[in-house]
Design a protein around this nucleic acid. Structure first.
Lengths: 233, 233
DNA sequence: ACCTGAACACCGTTCAAGT
DNA sequence: ACCTGAACACCGTTCAAGT
């Protein structure tokens, strides 16, 4: 327990971690477009230029935010079978992206992955490898799962409605504006599915996830059969 | 054939369509961040403020660009069975997003879909409905497929390398920087898969796509069996 | 009807100056 | 070592003025 240094007005001393956590909270609350260096400084009771003592520039800040988000994702557990482990981490991943929707659109994890991102990827790959997936199959599985998770989070983020009450209201308006004779199937789906009470897009996630996990399991079994006689690695 | 009006310097008269196509070309070439109203006007030999005669504001411009991109996607054909039709349009969708990577991150298709977007969605939904998918299953299938496509395009866009020659160079550097003892599985995958000659991330797309299409087919068959006796509509 | 120039309220970032 | 104030080169957008 060491005391944090404070200035005369009682502000905590800045550090990278605090800068990142405040910017994440701000982006969650007001959207990524509202996250400006000036607004961010204001939030910390400091001038925008002070931030440059703790992050190299705005890109570095965004990279750091994405890596911090990866840290929130539940790692696949060594105690679960691969399917359970991947299911849990996928559900966690989606929940995290849902909490931080701005993270979905940021390209930083690909080009400049931080330590949390690397650790997460390493554990996912390791889980699949240890379950018997070949290297190529691991790459396929990783790509399929993460594409689905990212894409789902992105669609969720871009939905015109957020709360469940909101859904009915917005969808009704959209439906009214929709020329039903021009888009009959879209109108039907909206009226008979989206507008049904209790509809929540997030509920779609597990269905597609199981589709992919089942497919991967089938791949794995087929692959194991092909290797059958000399099964001892 | 009507002659386009030109001013003294031979510039074509502006219109919304031309504004959109130039902005798409500019975004493709220089990235979405470089697409500013001023730069865009310059490209057209016009002041930035002239653009406001043809688009309401920048958000409207971006919405229009996304809808124009949707127009490039091959619609599912009525002459193909549902699986073939969905495969073709999915492959086309990914190729289009690969040509216009900036479109992946734009939220406009969800909140303010244009006519091309609506038509595309209507045809996709219609294809599934006519193949015997229930409304709920259609929604599931649509969500699973489009999540995968969007997510794949996004991962592709965020890859640290683009050309195949580039891949080897960049991956080598990344691998060298990667503490192999800390991230052994990631290092292995990079060395034994990504760095293999001929590796191209885009090749992963069909594999995940077939996984999902096969899963959907299995759903459909199970669903048809459950409805079996009264199979008429 | 369409284009322009000047202006406004913002950005990210630098740099010398303060403590 | 960290924070600040002024400044620079940008943004999107408005509005009155031109043709």
């Amino acid at each position: 327990m060491h005391r944090v240094s404070r200035d005369d007005e009682g502000h905590q001393r800045l550090n990278r971690e605090r800068v990142l956590s405040v910017s994440i909270a701000l982006a969650d609350r007001t959207g990524i477009d509202s996250l400006t260096m000036r607004r961010h400084g204001e939030e910390l009771g400091v001038e925008a230029m002070s931030l440059y003592n703790h992050v190299a520039n705005k890109v570095d800040l965004l990279n750091g935010m994405v890596d911090a988000v990866f840290n929130e994702i539940e790692l696949p557990s060594h105690n679960d079978d691969w399917k359970t482990a991947m299911r849990k981490r996928s559900v966690s991943f989606r929940a995290v992206l849902s909490r931080h929707p701005w993270a979905t659109g940021l390209k930083d994890s690909g080009t400049n992955p931080g330590p949390a991102t690397l650790r997460h990827h390493d554990r996912v790959i390791g889980t699949l490898r240890n379950a018997g997936f070949s290297i190529a199959m691991t790459a396929h599985a990783f790509s399929a799962l993460d594409s689905y998770i990212y894409g789902f989070a992105m669609q969720e983020k871009n939905l015109p409605f957020t709360t469940e009450e909101d859904t009915a209201a917005r969808a009704h308006i959209m439906l009214a504006q929709l020329p039903a004779n021009e888009y009959p199937y879209l109108a039907e789906l909206t009226a008979d599915h989206v507008l049904k009470p209790g509809y929540n897009y997030a509920d779609e996630f597990p269905l597609g996830l199981e589709l992919i996990l089942d497919g991967l399991e089938r791949w794995l079994e087929k692959h194991k059969l092909e290797q059958e006689p000399d099964t001892e690695r």
